[in-house]
Design a protein around this nucleic acid. Structure first.
Length: 266
DNA sequence: CCTTGAACCTGCGGGC
DNA sequence: TGCCCGCAGGTTCAAG
């Protein structure tokens, strides 16, 4: 989403802001619309699953899409749909529209300089696509953890950005059972897992993300990575290249679905 | 500190 | 047709 927003937003001005309700997951901050109006976008960044739109006035618009959020660019004349909660008119003549049926998403506005210490960010772990992320970082995070490795991956205090789909997918590609105790996963296995995480995320970004239901790319198109899932949402089916009778299994961990191939993951 | 479960909210598909 | 249930890409908080 950030990569698509970048050329559309950088250098543009927010000509008008319409809030079609008072809150998403949280209430909008004080004077939210007024503080955004007439501000120019310096650049678009990201931290974990948060989209960061840095403004020239040294404030940053923070956006999280939650489960069902979409950010799309629309023609100015397009009438608002149900759950279009925030509409930002750009000086390009296009609208940036935030739609979120479940409202687990959020928007906030904060000083750019102190973002790292912001409540939303100060507990976050390492970026998996950074060159500094490797098996050693996973080992440090997993050390002495008795929780299942799948749940340790979902915990954003260790590694950020790995959600429920990509945790299952990365563990499959690394050949590690999601049920293993995190602290018991050996270094040679972590040397498969770290690259598997990077590869899975990069492949999904390239495919425009995963559209199970709500997710759309910024241009409104579906993402296509769901067609590349090895195990996620494939219970009872074979995993890729699996010609044996073994089927993908679905279990619940921490209240969330996990998919894995018992034959290829141990 | 740890882990688990529930809560937030809407929509959709399946079973009856 | 319609109702009820379970489930969904995330995060956070309370309780044990």
């Amino acid at each position: 989403v950030c990569r698509a927003l970048k050329p559309l937003l950088e250098g543009r001005k927010f000509a008008a802001i319409t809030l079609r309700r008072q809150n998403l997951r949280f209430p909008f901050p004080p004077s939210f619309a007024a503080r955004l109006k007439n501000q120019k976008v310096k650049n678009v960044g990201r931290r974990a699953k948060y989209i960061l739109i840095h403004l020239m006035n040294h404030e940053t618009l923070i956006i999280h899409l939650g489960m069902s959020g979409r950010l799309t660019i629309q023609n100015k004349k397009t009438p608002p749909l149900k759950h279009d909660h925030v509409i930002i008119e750009l000086d390009s003549g296009q609208n940036l529209v935030f739609n979120d049926a479940r409202r687990f998403g959020l928007m906030d506005l904060a000083a750019t300089k102190t973002l790292e210490s912001h409540q939303l960010f100060n507990h976050l772990g390492i970026e998996p696509l950074s060159p500094r992320f490797n098996a050693g970082k996973l080992a440090a995070w997993f050390k002495n953890k008795k929780t299942a490795v799948k749940l340790a991956l979902l915990d954003q205090r260790g590694v950020v950005g790995v959600g429920n789909i990509y945790a299952s997918e990365a563990l499959y590609h690394a050949g590690i059972s999601p049920k293993r105790m995190a602290g018991q996963v050996k270094l040679p296995e972590l040397k498969r897992l770290a690259p598997a995480i990077k590869k899975t995320l990069r492949r999904s970004i390239k495919a425009g993300g995963s559209s199970l239901r709500d997710y759309r790319q910024v241009d409104g198109e579906l993402g296509w990575f769901q067609d590349g899932f090895a195990v996620y949402d494939r219970a009872g089916l074979g995993c890729p290249g699996c010609f044996c009778a073994d089927k993908v299994k679905k279990i619940i961990q921490g209240g969330r679905s996990t998919f894995y191939c018992p034959k290829k993951q141990s």
